[in-house]
Design a protein around this nucleic acid. Structure first.
Lengths: 253, 253
DNA sequence: CGGCTGGTTGATTCAAGAATCAGCCAACCA
DNA sequence: TGGTTGGCTGATTCTTGAATCAACCAGCCG
């Protein structure tokens, strides 16, 4: 019984096929959404027989669950590493934003599924999903608690809420890209969005508030001056044209 | 043809029954999620025959759509009113947070559905949903653009992104309650959360940043001192116990 | 009173698609 | 070479639940 169905157990002994299917699932979910696609779609995308999906995954739910765990565990591990590391809060917040945006840059599809399908979705919340989501927030809440004790935070700031706000900002920032509100094809924009999220969260948006002056805006030593792309003609340089994705037609044959 | 099926037309001439069904739909969606419930559930909840649902709504999708429009239109109208009003940005931001939290206080179920089911959900994005969501963000982005021109915003802040962040914060703040991370039964907590969201967004969370000193923290003239409930023992006063909601068992008879 | 109208009912129909299963085939071993 | 194993196949079965529809009933009008 060194290898039974639906259980890869040891991460390494994971069949090539299984991974192919998982990848296909991510792509299909990202394209049509969990409910909007059939197992057949996943199988086809993976170039594999319908039945094989069930060889590797107990059912459709487990498939989504696995997609989730795969993607999420990576993120949470990195986030945890940052949260539990030593250093000033300012730095940590920036690095957390980093982690999230880097994940998006590397695999936007996966992030899309995570954000759109899993993070919320109460339906079939058989698994952690919510729990896992809540975990990161708790995790970083601890970070804020420590920061507060160290006098880095305003005393009237609630750590749990601050944590929720940080991730809310990050999530919505990413959502803007996922949804096409902002152009995701431009790496510079991702970079700027990331920076602004951290900055706004830390210093607020008001003119009066300490601008990034107090801190080097970038910890990569790059531009201190906004890039030329910053055309002030239109006030929303992140905006762009985008055709709405075509939804599947109603069933009627 | 003064009144054909599935079309209430004039808001006022809306049959009592129709409203009952809509209400039931909100409750059931909030409890089980859109995909997790059958029309039969809605009918039962409304105390109405199965078929009647189809008398008033073309199909399940239209039902969700209507729930959405009903709830959302109210919110967007208020938000727009605030965004387009005169006054300092600080005030506007606070009032927008107000609108959102007030909506939640009045009808948490409806807000839950809006947040969990509709705002995201790419599946069946037949209608606006996303679009509508995007609209509010665009709307408030204009507000930020004006504020920026008026010199109220830091120059390096992108209006569109700022808007996304504000609503991201609000949404995640509410989500914390929806999900049970924070205790929603306490009006004081809602009040505090609301205040902190606006404050953090405006001034940031750092100690160095201008605290709410520059502005009266509350525009309702109420408590300037945090209530006694503010036990500093645990660093996360918003936390509370909560049993996980029971999910429907897997189909297997 | 008897027939018409329109809201109401819920059993029946029907399609979608999840899950199963009987077996195929390639590799490997005796 | 014949037999065994196990990844793999995809037509078939079965369940679920959306949508339909024929009949019902209450009020109303002629």
């Amino acid at each position: 019984m060194g290898q039974q169905k639906t259980a890869p157990e040891n991460g390494t002994r994971e069949s090539e096929r299984r991974r192919t299917i998982l990848r296909a699932a991510i792509d299909v979910f990202a394209r049509k959404g969990y409910h909007g696609c059939r197992i057949a779609d996943v199988a086809k995308e993976a170039g594999v027989a319908y039945g094989l999906v069930y060889h590797y995954f107990k059912n459709k739910d487990e498939l989504l669950e696995t997609v989730f765990e795969t993607g999420w565990s990576g993120f949470i591990a990195r986030a945890r590493a940052v949260a539990e590391s030593e250093g000033p809060l300012v730095e940590k917040v920036r690095r957390i934003a980093d982690v999230a945006f880097e994940a998006y840059r590397v695999d936007p599809r996966a992030v899309k599924v995570l954000i759109l399908e899993i993070a919320r979705s109460p339906a079939g919340a058989r698994i952690n999903r919510q729990t896992a989501f809540v975990d990161v927030i708790r995790l970083s809440a601890q970070m804020f608690t420590h920061a507060k004790e160290a006098g880095e935070l305003r005393p009237d700031v609630d750590p749990l809420l601050a944590s929720a706000l940080l991730f809310g900002s990050i999530e919505m920032g990413l959502t803007a890209f996922v949804v096409g509100l902002a152009d995701a094809r431009d790496a510079v924009m991702l970079e700027r969005a990331k920076a602004q999220i951290a900055d706004s969260f830390l210093h607020g948006v008001l003119l009066g508030g300490a601008s990034s002056k107090a801190e080097p805006a970038k910890h990569e030593g790059a531009k201190h001056e906004p890039p030329a792309a910053e055309a002030p003609g239109d006030a929303a340089p992140l905006k762009r044209e985008k055709a709405a994705p075509k939804a599947r037609a109603p069933k009627r044959g």
